[in-house]
């Protein structure tokens, strides 16, 4: 990766190893995510929603940034997870982790089923299909109001303490700890996945869909796998949202949620693992601050931010940063 590496030492094994090595910046990043507990205790509920959105963005990054599947309906899985976890908690059992398991399972099954369609198409067709899938689910949740609460939202979700000890409190200590913990676990899994030969094959598919089968990697099978995994992670993110807010509304399945997460990923930088996390943080904090200044016009500033980032930093904030450091190293 770096110019100082002697080319002779770069066998495929050492290349894979160098990818998965932990960098100082990464460790610093994760330590920094603990800071809100002490520095901003009154912002913890915002922090927990950022962690949830970051996890959702991570799931989209897996398919968009690595496998090149453009989706405008990813909220379908987020919403499925949210409703599954919410309904499970309401009618069956309030233990949080089992709720997440149910959310992951339901989202995963639907993700797997739809992956057979997804893997057959590319580009614009894909956008339309994912968009349609999202709209279908939104309408289904609206019409099944006996189960989902319809447009009034799912009520009566009451969640038990995490590990039977940590109650979800007013300040959001538990909510943030819980969301952050799950985010970190999912991140570890994603990071391992991306830095494996499977991850390399995905990047190959992104760059050239038809050529990959020629070197022995079946593009469609790979896409089915990664799409299902992405659906599971999105479902878990939705499940956490349902559990920490103890309500689910139709909005979890909305087009806006799919579009917003795409914006976050573009802001942060797609295909960079941390892009979604950074993008979610920047988007949500900017939104919180801008809407505090002028509640009517915050979307205007988000628009400005997006235009500026896309024009000046085509690969997102992280893309821009790595370009800067590369230039600085060369000198």
């Amino acid at each position: 990766m770096t110019a100082s590496d002697p080319a002779a030492a770069m066998t495929p094994q050492t290349y894979m190893q160098s990818l998965s090595r932990w960098r100082v910046l990464e460790i610093a990043f994760w330590l920094a995510t603990l800071l809100p507990f002490w520095l901003f205790p009154t912002y913890l509920s915002l922090a927990s929603q950022i962690a949830i959105t970051a996890l959702f963005a991570l799931s989209l990054d897996l398919i968009l940034g690595y496998a090149g599947i453009v989706s405008l309906g990813h909220a379908a899985f987020f919403g499925l997870g949210a409703y599954s976890a919410g309904i499970f908690t309401k009618f069956v059992w309030g233990e949080p982790f089992s709720g997440l398991l149910v959310a992951a399972l339901v989202a995963g099954i639907v993700g797997f089923a739809s992956s057979f369609i997804i893997s057959r198409f590319r580009h614009l067709t894909l956008i339309m299909i994912t968009l349609g899938l999202g709209l279908l689910l939104h309408e289904a949740a609206n019409s099944m109001s006996w189960l989902t609460g319809g447009s009034d939202g799912l009520q009566g979700v009451s969640i038990k303490p995490v590990f039977g000890v940590f109650k979800f409190d007013l300040y959001g200590y538990t909510a943030y700890g819980y969301a952050l913990g799950i985010l970190f676990l999912c991140f570890l899994f994603t990071r391992r996945l991306i830095n494996s030969p499977f991850g390399l094959a995905l990047r190959g598919i992104r760059e050239n869909f038809t050529r990959m089968p020629a070197i022995g990697a079946d593009s469609r099978a790979h896409i089915r796998k990664v799409y299902t995994i992405s659906a599971i992670i999105a479902g878990i993110a939705g499940g956490i949202l349902a559990q920490t807010t103890e309500t689910v509304a139709l909005e979890v399945l909305s087009f806006e949620r799919s579009a917003d997460v795409l914006v976050m990923l573009v802001l942060g930088g797609a295909g960079r693992l941390y892009g979604g996390l950074i993008g979610a943080g920047v988007f949500m904090i900017a939104r919180d601050q801008f809407s505090g200044i002028a509640p009517q016009y915050w979307y205007f500033w988000i628009g400005v931010l997006l235009v500026v980032v896309v024009m000046l930093l085509p690969n997102g904030i992280l893309g821009g940063l790595s370009k800067l450091t590369a230039r600085w190293r060369r000198k």
């Binding site: 309500t247 509304a249 909005e251």
Partner: peptide, 23 residues
Amino acid sequence: IRKDVAGPQPPVAKRLAQELVVR
């Protein structure tokens, strides 16, 4: 103190209420 919830978004409404109370 005014807060914008931008539509039918209960998680946001809940968080805003929470922040209004604690912050």
